[in-house]
């Protein structure tokens, strides 16, 4: 059963943990692009293994950092001529920029627009811990 036709050329974001599809959709700002997009929720007949899927037709510059912060179950399929030409398993990103705000209130990044910190992954037990390139404080990321 397929509610929506498969795409010809584009990206399929597959195996999104059930319930997180909408979050991924918003974080990627898919509501602001021109491409044809589909969000499928609760896909799969097996009760325990339902998942969400997002399909994007055409060219789209996918930000893997965002996916890695939200859900590492995700696999990304690149589609050309209705065939999967590449499968990418999403991982927690080692470096993150833009998506995180430094939690140190004394950090220069809060008061100067030029200071755009890069965060480096320094720990991931339970929650992700990222160190700010400016003040070196560790910010905990809970993207759930």
């Amino acid at each position: 059963m397929r509610l929506v036709n498969s795409i010809k050329n584009g990206i399929v974001i597959d195996h999104i943990t059930k319930g997180r599809g909408l979050r991924v959709y918003h974080e990627l700002k898919l509501d602001t692009i021109e491409n044809t997009t589909v969000l499928l929720m609760n896909v799969g007949s097996d009760h325990l293994n339902k998942k969400d899927i997002i399909k994007i037709e055409g060219d789209f510059d996918l930000n893997h950092e965002i996916l890695g912060l939200i859900d590492t179950n995700i696999t990304v399929n690149l589609i050309e001529n209705e065939k999967v030409v590449k499968k990418i398993f999403v991982e927690v990103p080692e470096k993150v920029s833009n998506l995180i705000k430094c939690q140190n209130p004394r950090c220069i990044s809060h008061t100067d627009d030029y200071a755009k910190p890069v965060f480096t992954l320094v720990g991931k037990n339970g929650e992700l811990q990222y160190q700010c390139s400016y003040c070196e404080e560790v910010t905990k990321v809970k993207f759930k």
Partner: peptide, 29 residues
């Protein structure tokens, strides 16, 4: 004024900058 602008200009006027700043990471910037 952004720190970047202050520094760009001051570095034309000098050979070496010594700076103290209340914000952490400002000298790196």
């Amino acid at each position: 004024e952004s720190l970047a602008d202050t520094i760009r200009v001051m570095s034309f006027y000098s050979d070496l900058i010594v700076m103290r700043h209340p914000k952490e990471g400002a000298p790196l910037l």
